[in-house]
Design a protein around this nucleic acid. Structure first.
Length: 358
DNA sequence: AACCCGTGGTT
DNA sequence: TAACCAAGGGT
């Protein structure tokens, strides 16, 4: 067993202290190879690492687990994913949010399939050049899948570094400073396990609200713990208030059970996703926007209302419902046969509207 | 550089 | 209940 006394901290062996902690405290995840197996030479599949990392962008592990399992069951490798129809991938992603991720996921899979022979490049710069792979994900795949010594800087690492070094500069200004501190600690040995170890530390011990400093493997060298500032770090610039927008959705059911839906344009909010036709969504309107119905029908207003909050605004939607005959011609959207309509293919705000029908 | 882009759980 | 937060990337 390696020595983890305070002596290590003073001699600057923080990475080893953390790796020792990780060896016994690593969280188990479907895309992860545990530290014991990694030491025996096993490496995680780069496709699974990449897929999990994209899903985990701004998304909790608990939410990602089931999506990840469904994706790898349906598309076991990048070639299979690259061959999938857009609508199937967007439908499987529905509910996860940040739908540009799914569009870029497909673009990336197709580039890897066509230009890299179906193999993810073991090269940081080549990874960074792929759609949907930014600085964090490139470093994560390079280190976790290929054990290349790159430094991940996500929300966890920012928090851990801000506390370890008692950095009071608010985010996002502090980002370059925190990156430099994180890079200085990244070891050449086991960089993949180290990257996952820092994130596990941030997720389980060095948590945002009440950090468990008493059981932290870095409690001795931690400057914020010494200063009593851990729970207040990292500082963040205040966020803008969210405006409230209003709009109307139209839900039409044909006599054969088909639903009138449209695929949204692949740019902007809910881009590329299935949804109910409706009005524009406007700020604090005196009169709620009604727009133009997508089909000629006897529309009835529903009493209920959909409330939903996006990243940067609240939304309140009123609903109108109609039953139409087989001869009816949509002005917008297309009828989707009930046999091929899965409510789970809808983004959450649209599924809320469907659920409101009962 | 600043803004856009989802959702669900926690406090 | 409202605010905060999560393995960020694109433009």
């Amino acid at each position: 067993m390696r020595d983890t006394s305070p002596e290590d901290a003073r001699t600057g062996d923080l990475p080893l202290i953390l790796l020792d902690w990780y060896d016994s405290h690593a969280r188990a995840m479907p895309w992860r190879v545990p530290p014991g197996a990694r030491k025996a030479g096993q490496r995680p599949d780069a496709y699974r690492v990449w897929l999990s990392e994209v899903m985990l962008q701004q998304t909790t592990v608990a939410t990602v687990r089931d999506y990840f399992r469904r994706f790898v069951t349906r598309w076991p490798d990048v070639t299979a994913l690259a061959a999938a129809p857009d609508a199937e991938v967007m439908g499987e992603w529905a509910g996860l949010g940040y739908y540009a991720r799914a569009r870029n996921l497909l673009k990336c899979a197709r580039v890897v399939a066509e230009r890299h022979g179906g193999v993810f490049p073991a090269d940081h710069a080549a990874l960074l050049a792929l759609p949907g792979i930014g600085p964090y994900t490139a470093a994560a795949v390079a280190s976790i899948a290929f054990d290349l010594p790159f430094t991940v800087l996500d929300g966890n690492v920012e928090r851990v570094m801000a506390r370890l070094h008692d950095v009071h500069t608010p985010l996002p200004t502090a980002k370059p400073e925190l990156m430099a501190l994180a890079q200085a600690l990244t070891p050449v040995t086991r960089p993949g396990d180290y990257a996952q170890a820092v994130m596990d530390l941030g997720a389980t011990i060095c948590t945002p609200r009440s950090p468990a400093c008493g059981i932290c493997p870095w409690r001795t060298p931690c400057a914020a713990r010494r200063a009593g500032t851990a729970a207040d770090l990292p500082r963040k610039l205040p966020k803008k208030a969210k405006p409230t927008r209003h709009g109307t959705l139209y839900l039409a059911r044909r006599s054969d059970g088909a639903w009138l839906l449209e695929t949204r344009p692949d740019t902007g909010l809910l881009g590329g996703m299935l949804g109910w036709p409706g009005s524009d969504w406007l700020d604090a309107a005196e009169d709620r926007p009604v727009g133009t119905p997508p089909i000629k029908a006897d529309w009835q207003m529903l009493s209920g209302e959909v409330r939903h909050t996006f990243t940067h605004f609240h939304l309140m939607l009123s609903l109108r419902f109609a039953e139409v005959g087989m001869e009816a011609e949509p002005i917008r959207g297309a009828f989707l046969p009930s046999a091929s309509f899965r409510p789970s293919d809808l983004p959450t705000v649209m599924r809320k509207a469907f659920d409101l029908l009962g």
